[in-house]
């Protein structure tokens, strides 16, 4: 287990370095932050002073080395926009995103398991056909469009829900609904396929021959096996939720990491962009490790290899 973790950490470290390299140089291709942060009629002197203060006057390679040195000391730089440590901004924004993504993920997995299991129980039945169509639509619908249409219908026309912002329950409904759509649609299909296989297996026959009730056959014997493939996909989708969060947070003005990332890119706030991406990448790495552990916990056959 320790060697497995070590290998995993090494791979992730290499990937992280590649990612930092790419982000560091790519973000600098977006242009010169000086143009955005100083008044249009700022003197050359002021501009030079600004560039010098943030190190933009040095060659990029040198900037990168300085950046690496700072990172190794745990310093991810100051936000150009907010004049505060970039890390602080990221850590402030993270809980909001985690709450949004967490609730959306838990809800979509739970619902998908129920819907997928019922669909698989009677393949080709009415429920199966309706849920297949609905889940396909959910998985294929572009979330930015659904988000804006949702605002138009529920917030502007019907006035049932607020258009954007953070607050009590009504503020959560639209963002979570939109964020759930794709993972829910995909998960229903995955759960259905996995349950279809499990329900036609020999061990389900054994369970029925033992006199185990149908509910336990479905939700204990079959689902516990289907979990193995469900977890794989759910893991990928959770990672992919970062993408969804960027869009949903932007559309709904949700002050999370996704919005922070987009705002920082727009404002050429390089240190914040770098910090968001590094923290997110680390979170994904940890998530993958957690999924590996979950796998081992779920499948005794892997455990004994």
């Amino acid at each position: 287990m320790a060697s497995f973790l070590g290998r995993r950490a090494l791979h992730s470290a290499i990937a992280l370095i590649g990612l930092i390299l790419a982000v560091f140089f790519l973000v600098r291709l977006t242009g010169d932050p000086t143009d955005l942060y100083l008044p249009i009629d700022a003197s050359l002197e002021t501009r030079k002073e600004f560039a010098h203060k943030h190190g933009f006057d040095r060659p990029s390679a040198e900037q990168f080395l300085v950046f690496l040195k700072d990172v190794s000391n745990g310093d991810l730089g100051y936000s150009l926009r907010k004049q505060r440590p970039a890390m602080e901004l990221v850590l402030e924004a993270y809980p909001t995103t985690l709450a949004l993504a967490g609730v959306a993920m838990v809800l979509s997995i739970t619902l998908a398991i129920i819907v997928g299991a019922i669909a698989a129980y009677k393949p080709g039945g009415v429920f199966d056909r309706i849920s297949s169509m609905a889940s396909l639509a959910g998985a294929s619908a572009p979330d930015f469009w659904i988000a804006i249409t949702g605002i138009l219908i529920f917030a502007v026309t019907l006035r049932w829900l607020p258009t954007s912002g953070v607050g009590d329950l009504p503020y959560w409904i639209l963002p979570i609904g939109v964020l759930m759509l794709r993972p829910f649609g995909l998960m229903v299909q995955v759960v259905r396929a996995a349950m279809l296989g499990a329900l036609s297996s020999a061990y389900v026959k054994t369970a029925r021959a033992k006199g185990v009730g149908e509910t336990a056959v479905i939700f204990v014997h079959a689902l516990r096996n289907a979990c193995l493939s469900i977890v794989t996909v759910a893991g990928d989708l959770t990672v992919g939720m970062i993408n969804g969060a960027v869009i949903v947070e932007t559309v709904f003005g949700w002050p999370g990491v996704g919005k922070l990332m987009i705002d920082s890119v727009m404002q050429r706030d390089f240190p914040t962009v770098q910090a968001t991406i590094m923290v997110t990448a680390t979170a994904i790495f940890l998530l993958n490790i957690a999924i590996d552990f979950l796998y081992v916990a779920l499948d005794p056959r892997i455990r004994h290899q």
Binding site: K205, T206, R208, A209, G211, H221, N225, P300
Partner: peptide, 20 residues
């Protein structure tokens, strides 16, 4: 089933649930 009438299947590997 199980109480008064029971069944033994051919392939015990697939007939036993692998995760319990």
């Amino acid at each position: 089933c199980g109480r008064e009438i029971a069944m033994v299947f051919q392939d015990a590997l697939t007939s036993l649930n692998p995760v319990f």
